[in-house]
Design a protein around this nucleic acid. Structure first.
Lengths: 200, 200
DNA sequence: CTGTATACTATACACGCGCATAGGAGCCCG
DNA sequence: CGGGCTCCTATGCGCGTGTATAGTATACAG
C-alpha cells in the first residue's frame, strides 16, 4: 500500500471520524467543507485515496465511500453469538435469540466449550463491577461451583448472579445489597461468566 | 421498542444486507427499487422504522440511515500494547513499559489515534464498575472533557480518575467515597478511557 | 528543463435525491 | 360505521450530488 501524504492522511482521518459519528460516509462536498477547500479539491483527494488503495468508491453514487480496512492483523479471534432475550423452554441458540456476533480475543477461551455473550441488564451485580449495558462473555455449562457467577434460567427469566449450593436448595446471590438472594430448587444453569467487556 | 410489521422487517433486513454488501446505507430510491414499489412507499417505510426506533435518519441528506442496533457481524480486531508501570518523565511507549499486546475489537478504535491498555490497580474506581486487575483500554490524548475518565500523570504516579476542570485547577475524582478528590494545577493527561475488559 | 505528482480554485452540467401532495385499497378496533 | 393504521401509486419541486473542464502554484526526480 502506497504512502499517503500528510494532507491525505488528514482526509482519511476525517472519513473515519465522520463514519464514527454518523455511521454513514460523508459526501464530497461535506469533505470539502470540513477542510474549507473546493469541491474538486476534496474530490481529487478521495480519488487519490482510492488510487492508493485506502478507500473504494462507486461511480455516481452519493456517499459511496468504503473504507478498505487494511488487513491490520490476524489475531487469534473467535466470533461468538451475542444473544438477546432468552426465552424459557427454548434452546439457547435458537435463531430468535440471536442478536449479532462479537469478536473476542481467543486467548480467554481456553478449552473448546461453546461460548456466547449477553447484554447485562440491571444493576444487580454492581458490587462485582458489572454494570448495565456491559457485555458478558459466558462459557456454556450445565454446572457451576460455589461462588461462580453464572447465567441461570429461573422459570421465566434469565439472570446473572453468584451461585451457591446449600443443603437442599440453590442460592442465587446478587452483588447489590438492595437485592435479596433468590432461593430455589428448580433452576437451570446456562453458563459461567468468563469475561466482561464494556465500551465508553 | 414497538413491534414491526412483516413488511417493515423485510425493509429493515434489506438495509442490513445492503450495509453488509456496500458498507454504506441505501438511498430511498434504491430501497424502493429493491422491492419494486414506489419511492414514497419506501420513504414511508423508512419513516415508520424511524418512528419505531429501529433506525435514525437525518433530514435532507442522502443515504443518511443509521441503524440503532448495528449488525456488524464480523468485528475486526486490533492489537494494542499493554503497558506496565509507567514512569514519569519518560515516553509512554518506551520499551521498558511494554508488557505484552492485547487484542481488542477494532470498532472501539474510531480513528487512527493510538491506543494502549493498562492494568488497573486499586479500588479507587469501583463506583464506576472498574475493579483492580481489569484491563483499561485508553485512547491516547492530551486533552479531555469534564467528566471523562482519564489516565493522568501526576508528579511521580499514574492514575485513572474522573477528570474535571475547575476555576484555576484540575480535579481528579475517584469513584469511591474513601478517596478524597485530588486538586492540582500541574498534571498531564495521557489518555481517555475507551473500554474495560475483565477476565474471570 | 521537462514531466509528473500534489494541492488547490472556480464554474458548470445533468441527474439523483429527499420530501411533499394527493390520492386509493385493505385492515382491525371500538 | 367511522377512524386510524398500513401499504401502496403517480407526479412533481428544487436542491444536493458526483463528476468534468480549465487553470494556478509548488515541489521533486531524471
Amino acid at each position: 500500500m502506497k504512502e499517503l501524504t500528510a494532507r491525505q492522511k488528514e482526509i482519511l482521518n476525517f472519513i473515519h471520524e465522520y463514519l464514527h459519528d454518523n455511521s454513514y460516509p460523508p459526501t464530497v462536498r461535506e469533505t470539502a467543507r470540513a477542510f474549507s477547500i473546493s469541491v474538486k479539491g476534496a474530490y481529487d483527494h478521495l480519488k487519490a485515496l482510492e488510487r492508493k488503495g485506502y478507500i473504494k468508491t462507486s461511480e455516481k453514487r452519493s456517499r459511496a465511500i468504503e473504507l478498505v480496512t487494511p488487513p491490520e492483523s490476524d489475531m487469534p479471534v473467535v466470533q461468538i453469538p451475542l444473544l438477546g432475550e432468552i426465552a424459557a423452554g427454548r434452546p439457547i441458540f435458537a435463531d430468535e435469540n440471536f442478536e449479532r456476533t462479537v469478536a473476542i480475543p481467543a486467548d480467554i477461551i481456553t478449552n473448546r466449550v461453546p461460548h456466547f455473550a449477553l447484554h447485562v441488564k440491571g444493576d444487580s451485580m454492581i458490587g462485582a463491577g458489572i454494570l448495565s449495558g456491559d457485555i458478558a462473555i459466558i462459557e456454556q455449562s450445565e454446572t457451576a461451583k460455589n461462588g461462580d457467577i453464572v447465567v441461570a434460567l429461573l422459570e421465566e427469566t434469565v439472570t446473572l448472579k453468584r451461585f451457591f449450593i446449600e443443603n437442599n436448595r440453590y442460592r442465587l446471590q446478587a452483588e447489590n445489597p438492595h437485592y435479596a438472594p433468590i432461593y430455589t430448587q428448580d433452576l437451570r444453569i446456562l453458563g459461567k461468566l468468563r469475561g466482561i467487556y464494556r465500551s465508553y
